[in-house]
């Protein structure tokens, strides 16, 4: 059986084709902007998060990343897909209530410009970091720059893409919540990659991978607690304050089915499941358990973003499924071709 391996040009061509396919579906079939917005929210979290996790690990000299560094960094071309997909939101900006009464910050041109600029900057910084890291050069400044841009980008995604859907609803924590979730998603993705990539290795490799699996398990456990802290800190204050302009949006999410059920499901997936399942030490070295928890976490994050978007923006389920399956296929192909992504492999 021949293996399909793409070089760098092939990967970029694939990204452009995927973006075009999504664009055609968006305007030809779907007609409901929620699917695209949700896809953007979920994939920006994973793509930016994976590179950010690699950058953070490089800065603190984390050893577990060694087995996965190439794979995580090879996802950097996905960062280019985000500004391409974001362009398709331009004709659909009417979904934001502020378009009727533009303000100094919230107006169409500035909204598009700043988001495109930051998404492109994140791509360029991610590319620079990946190249330097894969070529074995020092990455300190590149990692710092990427992380600063990553935080800015995720914060803007939280405030611009989600919070402004229900303007003037405000949660100042949402930006920090989003970039923490992106790192959580990247840890879960690392867990999956570890399981996918190191199935039939030798005994020595198994020992190292076992240690790295344990570290990923520990990180996911830690992130589950951190996520809960942020989730609790955010919603406790909204509940306690009980201000109509703050609780209205939350009530919209939890009052009607399926939001009511989903709003219970994602805390289970993002906190309870990883917390309980990863509590024991031997479990953290089990590939199957790490894979199961990683899938649960990624599923939980998707459901959470769905809950945030669903009350205000109409979704097309078929389009949503298509976009995400397509992007999963693209990501897997990129990982499979990861040997060709580094600059030295050109």
């Amino acid at each position: 059986m021949t293996s399909m391996v793409l070089n760098k040009s092939g990967i970029y061509a694939l990204l452009v084709i995927s973006a075009l396919l999504i664009g055609l579906t968006e305007f030809g079939l779907s007609g409901k902007p929620g699917s695209l917005l949700l896809t953007l929210l979920f994939w920006s979290c994973i793509a930016q998060g994976c590179i950010a996790l690699a950058a953070a690990c490089e800065l603190v000299n984390a050893r577990w990343i060694a087995s996965l560094r190439r794979e995580l960094l090879s996802l950097y071309p996905l960062l280019l897909l985000l500004p391409l997909l974001f362009l398709f939101l331009w004709p659909q900006l009417d979904l934001y209530p502020w378009t009727d009464h533009p303000t100094l910050w919230l107006n169409r041109p500035f909204f598009m410009l700043r988001n495109l600029a930051i998404l492109l900057a994140v791509f360029l910084a991610g590319r620079h970091l990946a190249k330097r890291s894969l070529d074995g050069q020092t990455t300190g400044p590149a990692a710092v720059i990427y992380l600063l841009l990553f935080v800015t980008s995720q914060t803007l995604a939280a405030f611009d893409w989600v919070m402004s859907l229900v303007w003037p609803w405000i949660s100042t924590l949402l930006g920090a919540y989003f970039f923490t979730e992106a790192l959580y998603a990247a840890t879960a993705a690392s867990g999956l990659l570890m399981v996918l990539y190191f199935q039939g290795k030798t005994r020595d490799t198994s020992l190292a991978v076992g240690n790295h699996l344990r570290d990923i398990g520990l990180l996911m456990f830690g992130f589950s607690v951190l996520w809960t802290g942020l989730f609790f800190a955010q919603f406790l204050l909204l509940w306690y304050g009980n201000l109509p302009e703050e609780v209205g949006y939350i009530l919209d999410i939890i009052s009607n089915s399926p939001g009511r059920e989903l709003a219970w499901l994602f805390p289970l997936a993002l906190f309870l499941a990883p917390f309980i399942l990863l509590l024991g030490a031997p479990v953290k070295q089990s590939r199957h358990m790490i894979a199961a928890v990683s899938c649960t976490v990624l599923g939980g994050l998707f459901i959470e973003r769905l809950c945030l978007v669903m009350p205000t923006v109409p979704l097309h389920a078929g389009a949503l499924l298509f976009y995400n399956l397509l992007l999963i296929a693209v990501a897997l192909l990129m990982l499979h071709s990861s040997m060709h992504v580094s600059a030295s492999a050109d």
Binding site: T172, L173, L174, A176, G229, L230, A233, Q234
Partner: peptide, 8 residues
């Protein structure tokens, strides 16, 4: 005072 970012 009433702002969700206060805890972190």
């Amino acid at each position: 005072w009433h702002t969700t970012i206060f805890a972190p």
